[in-house]
Design a protein around this nucleic acid. Structure first.
Lengths: 140, 140
DNA sequence: ACTACGGATGCAAAAGCTTCTCATTATTAT
DNA sequence: ATAATAATGAGAAGCTTTTGCATCCGTAGT
């Protein structure tokens, strides 16, 4: 029994071909951050028969199940990332779209404090730093 | 000469009725955070003749001119806020949509450090804390 | 004030992303 | 294997936002 199917079972999801393929795609992706369209196109190129609607449905289910995180980067469309290991935030390049990750306990702590001071019960947070990455800075 | 028209002139924009009205709307809004649709509907209710396309166009121009900031809160559509005074971040209620603001120099400093460490030239950043506000926490 | 020019507006249509509908197909428990 | 039930694919629909175009308005020069 593969690791993927176990993940699906644990999440209370039936083990189907599309779900397996999408999970694999997320695991093997180099960038780790994919849009629904990215996943869809890659699967088509791999010769899979899949509908875009299914990709969206499955990704949403994965999000609900906690398997993936959905990010709303600038530009409107959602990006999905496999949830493995610890929480982290993102720093992204506005020129080439590169995405790096970081984690800062000082910031995390301050956020919790700020929410508490404001009387909020914190449920989530998102921090994106935008900039020009090392590679793009060179190219004028 | 009104304050609004000066703002527009400084931004290199012609002083037109729609632009004036939208600027007033942003200045007088209680919540300070409005979607394009919000602005459009409010202006219609005030008896103004305006098109939704114009609202979007003008808000984008205002953003380019630095008069307003555009935020991408969860849920897909953009929110616009008048740029007055200093930078700040947002904490919002996932139940009622309430938006509060905060500013934390510790976090700002850490962000700059993180960008520098990663070799990025920082251009922008966005931090949203999501939670349940004091009012909504009471209501079970 | 008057005119002419160029930019601004409104409407409708279009575009882009995401969700929904529904007939068909696949998965699971029996 | 079979029946019950959930998942899928294809296209239509929904929403926010943008664009094309004819018309209108602000502005600068007279």
């Amino acid at each position: 029994m593969s690791t993927e199917s176990n993940h699906l079972r644990k999440a209370g999801l039936k083990v189907t071909l599309p779900r397996m393929k999408i999970l694999e795609m997320l695991e093997n992706s180099e960038t780790r951050h994919l849009s629904a369209e990215d996943v869809y196109k890659s699967l088509l190129e791999s010769g899979e028969e899949i509908g875009l609607a299914t990709v969206y449905r499955v990704l949403t289910q994965f999000e609900t199940a906690g398997l993936v995180a959905r990010h709303h980067f600038e530009g409107g469309h959602s990006m999905f990332e496999l949830n493995e290991g610890d929480h982290h935030d993102h720093i992204l390049c506005v020129k080439c779209g590169r995405v790096d990750e970081f984690m800062d306990e000082t910031i995390e702590k301050r956020q919790r404090q700020i929410a508490q001071d404001a009387g909020y019960e914190i449920t989530d947070h998102s921090l994106y730093i935008y900039g020009i990455c090392p590679d793009c800075r060179g190219k004028a």
